[in-house]
Structures are given as structure tokens and as C-alpha cells.
């Protein structure tokens, strides 16, 4: 079991989450919105966080787990600081996004769905993000990169690595 509640700033994050739940009148209907908020705050939804939400809303943990596991947007695994979403929509597919995915996978040394050991990157395939005009498309966190070729992969990774270096 990961100890998500012993992490830095966990108390403050929980307070924000509590306030959000209160704002929703702790309604069962708001479950998906609350899970969005929880994931935004903590980065992912491990089982103890799911349990926490279920107790707050007074609903079975099985229901929370059922919802979390149903939707692909929710992650139960810890994710890297940057999630590299490679679009697997049809437009990107016919423009050869598979090669881009392989290149990311080779260079990062992780399979789609996996995270690098330094906790920096998670590689994911994502459903069409609707930027088909720019195919093939890669979205790193919220930023969209269009017309990505295998040659761009190394640069994208090193740019984000460099950004990390200058941040810390």
C-alpha cells in the first residue's frame, strides 16, 4: 500500500478535496467530478484515496472502484510528472503515429502505460484528442504538439528533461 497521505502537503490537499466535496453537497451524483478533483490534487487514485472518497460520500468502496476502473481518464498507478499522450485516433494512425509511439517507447525504455524510473515521464496512448488537422499529434500534459515525426522525439524528451533541470 502506498502511503499517499504521508506525502508532503497531503493535509492541505485533503482540505481542498474536503471543501470540494462539501461544495457538491456530498452527492453521490458528483462522484466523477470528485474523482477528477482528487486526481488533479494527488496525481492518481490509489486504493486508500478511493476508500477516503467512499467514506466521505457514504457509498460502498466497490462503487468507487467500479467507476475508477471503468473510465480511462482515471489512473490507479502513480504517474510521471509529465504524461506523454500519443494520440491513437484514426487520422494520426493513417499518418503513421505508431512509429512515433515506438520511438518514444524505445527512447524512454518503457512500454505504453509505463513510467520512467526517475518519475518524470509516463507514456500513454490516448483516444483521439480532436486535433486531427495536426496529425500525428502528441500531447504532453496539456500542451499539444502537432506534425510530430520520429525525429522530433529525442528533442521533445530532452526539452522536458532540460526544463526539469532548470526548475530544480
Amino acid at each position: 500500500m502506498s502511503d499517499i497521505f504521508s506525502l508532503e502537503h497531503a493535509d492541505e490537499k485533503l482540505k481542498v478535496l474536503d471543501a470540494f466535496i462539501k461544495e457538491q453537497n456530498a452527492e453521490e451524483e458528483a462522484l466523477i467530478s470528485i474523482l477528477h478533483k482528487a486526481q488533479e490534487l494527488f496525481g492518481y487514485l490509489p486504493s486508500e484515496l478511493q476508500l477516503y472518497v467512499s467514506r466521505k460520500l457514504n457509498i460502498p468502496a466497490a462503487k468507487v472502484y467500479g467507476v475508477v476502473s471503468f473510465y480511462s481518464y482515471f489512473s490507479q498507478e502513480k504517474r510521471g510528472k509529465y504524461t506523454i499522450n500519443v494520440c491513437m485516433g484514426t487520422a494520426c494512425f493513417v499518418k503513421g503515429v505508431e512509429k512515433v509511439m515506438h520511438e518514444f517507447s524505445d527512447q524512454l525504455g518503457v512500454k505504453p502505460g509505463g513510467s520512467t524510473s526517475d518519475g518524470l515521464f509516463t507514456l500513454k496512448d490516448v483516444r483521439c484528442i480532436g486535433a486531427c488537422g495536426l496529425a500525428p499529434v502528441v500531447m504532453i500534459n496539456d500542451k499539444v504538439f502537432g506534425h510530430v515525426t520520429t525525429h522530433d522525439v529525442a528533442r521533445l524528451i530532452s526539452d522536458y528533461r532540460a526544463q526539469e533541470g532548470s526548475d530544480s
Partner: peptide, 11 residues
């Protein structure tokens, strides 16, 4: 909930 891969008119 425009999920059809390759369609982006709703967005």
C-alpha cells in the same frame, strides 16, 4: 462527448 476518432467539429 465527441469520442469518434477523427471527428472534431463539436470541439
Amino acid at each position: 462527448d465527441e469520442g469518434d476518432p477523427g471527428a472534431f467539429m463539436d470541439r
